[in-house]
Write a protein that binds this DNA or RNA. Structure first.
Lengths: 339, 339
DNA sequence: TTGTAAGCGTTATCAT
DNA sequence: ATGATAACGCTTACAA
């Protein structure tokens, strides 16, 4: 069974509403935009015309004329599968969405595959959005810092480039990681390994530094490092590599909870008890941390709050108001059963 | 430290490019749009002007004039957290994205919280997109079928309303579920429970029907039903309710793999062996199915392919070409270790 | 308080 | 093959 495309009848225009209501287009425009100083009776009749015609303002025309789009982009320069797999993104987007839903702004999520970054770039710069929130900024991504001077942008985490003239919201990753590792030291652990994050973004770099700092202070060995890319499966592989070294390990700090999930799986496979044989501390406090047995001791990362703040700052910038360039949110160590 | 918003200097316009290249705006427009019949030398000089000015066409103006936007929406009428937690969405979006990346169309993902559906509606109808893909269609969502006659729309799964005049891509959920349950019967299982999906969408309804059909054919008891909402945690709860009934259960069919994941967790808690004591069959064949121990026997749901087809059909409709209203993709039962 | 009219940056039609 | 010129649907001074 084949059939024609659904015939789309022409959308009603502002002009048609004006005609029906017997007023000028400007007046209709005023009603649509909640402008003050419009006669209540006229407002009513215009609204009636709007609903009977089922009128919806054309966004292209509106943004062409007003030079605003009332929408903001959340750009995630990662593959779709990675974005969806990691609760970090979900939570951040949730936070952004929560703030945005109260406003006139619409959110559109752009998962920018590395495949054709210029497509995203021209989307952003083509006047489709009033501003952008950029998440997960790898060192290779020159593009995102560049759009900075044509469009308001707020980063999640300190961006790799243009650090000094970018707006961003972050936590003190190094201090948090150091605190987390310290906790392992305080438990009397002496062979403390880490599954570190990618070293082309500060979240990865700084958490590794924090782990090192804590071990240095305790005069412990800092050679037990393997790297992952924040995915669960990379956590598994890294855990295997650590165990296969054959060295003693009695504690583990992972740069995020997803990699801790991978580690848990491998430890279960090999019948290594948590925290008995190996104590584990993660980072993020995502849904895994509380749903697993034993529950995961981890750094609480205020991700929803990050989303809120990023959105607020972006809106500020869009409306031409001043804003803090750097927002640093506090973390806390949540002690549960794994360490 | 506060500072002003990043000053956005005025974007270069087509007119400026024309001036720099010493040609008319029409010619520049032709070059930008790869129109035929343009002098190669002129093409070159225009392109040079474009790059030196860093010109990017304004989308609003373009779509206002051309009445096309070159972007399509993927609308997910679910909460952000649900969307991100379920690999089904990720995989579907992945498939859509794969097809779209080859085209001139940009994808924007709209997670439409129930909070303000009219915002999404007016976004779609406001001429922001040339078409929409709608995923996860609950019975309550009148809105999405309605936009149907103003905008090309393709649904993932048979929509609850407007079934007869909507375009959609689906699998035969009932037959697949029946086949899966049959497999349990063939293993000699006689007390076969199910964790069913939400009964306000066909994916939930039809899979339950399939389970029932198989049990009827085998003259087995169909009372062992509990419902979930396709999330992992709802799967846990449903599994607990099933076990707490105190009746004998030696097999389980779950309406998706995420709920099977929940069931696995509960069975592990209670030290019930899979498949020894309870055989389990899922639905979707998502990442959980192969990453867990024992690996999950499940219905392979061709989700990526669904995404491809949905995108193809939508593009067809957008370009005014005919398309199949109903596309039904084949499933297969993947037998692994859990049943 | 309401209307008039001039754009907004493109595309599209029609000449040339 | 190229250039005028009129839309596209709306906002926004400015006038009334």
């Amino acid at each position: 069974m084949t059939t024609d495309a659904s015939r789309s009848r022409p959308a009603p225009t502002l002009e048609m509403v004006a005609a029906l209501a017997g007023v000028s287009r400007s007046t209709v425009s005023r009603v649509v935009n909640d402008a003050p100083n419009v006669d209540p009776d006229i407002v009513k009749s215009v609204q009636k015309a709007i609903t009977t015609l089922n009128y919806i303002p054309n966004r292209a025309a509106r943004s062409l004329a007003s030079r605003r789009t009332n929408s903001v982009a959340v750009v995630v320069p990662e593959s779709t599968s990675k974005v969806f797999a990691d609760p970090f993104f979900a939570t951040l987007v949730e936070g952004v969405a929560q703030t945005l839903v109260e406003t006139k702004y619409t959110l559109n999520l752009i998962v920018s595959s590395e495949a054709r970054p210029e497509k995203t770039r021209s989307y952003l710069l083509g006047g489709n959005v009033d501003g952008a929130l950029v998440v997960s900024h790898h060192s290779g991504d020159h593009s995102w810092t560049r759009i900075n001077d044509s469009l308001p942008v707020v980063f999640a985490g300190r961006p790799f480039r243009g650090e000094s003239d970018s707006f961003y919201v972050e936590v003190d990753n190094q201090a948090a990681a150091e605190r987390a590792t310290q906790h392992l030291v305080e438990q009397g652990r002496t062979a403390i390994a880490t599954i570190a994050g990618p070293q082309d973004m500060y979240a990865g770099i700084d958490r590794l530094r924090g782990w090192e700092a804590a071990l240095h202070s305790a005069r412990l060995n800092t050679s037990l490092v393997e790297f992952g890319d924040f995915t669960e499966s990379s956590g598994r592989k890294a855990m295997r590599r650590l165990l296969d070294r054959g060295e003693k390990i009695d504690a583990l700090f992972t740069a995020n909870d997803q990699m801790a999930a991978g580690a848990y799986a491998v430890l279960a496979e090999r019948n290594i008890r948590i925290p008995g044989e190996i104590a584990v501390v993660g980072f993020d406090d995502d849904s895994f941390a509380t749903s697993v047995t034993p529950t995961l001791t981890t750094v609480h990362h205020p991700i929803v709050e990050m989303g809120h703040r990023m959105a607020e700052i972006l809106l500020s910038l869009i409306e031409g108001n001043p804003a803090e360039r750097v927002t640093r949110l506090p973390t806390s160590l949540v002690i549960r059963d794994s360490a």
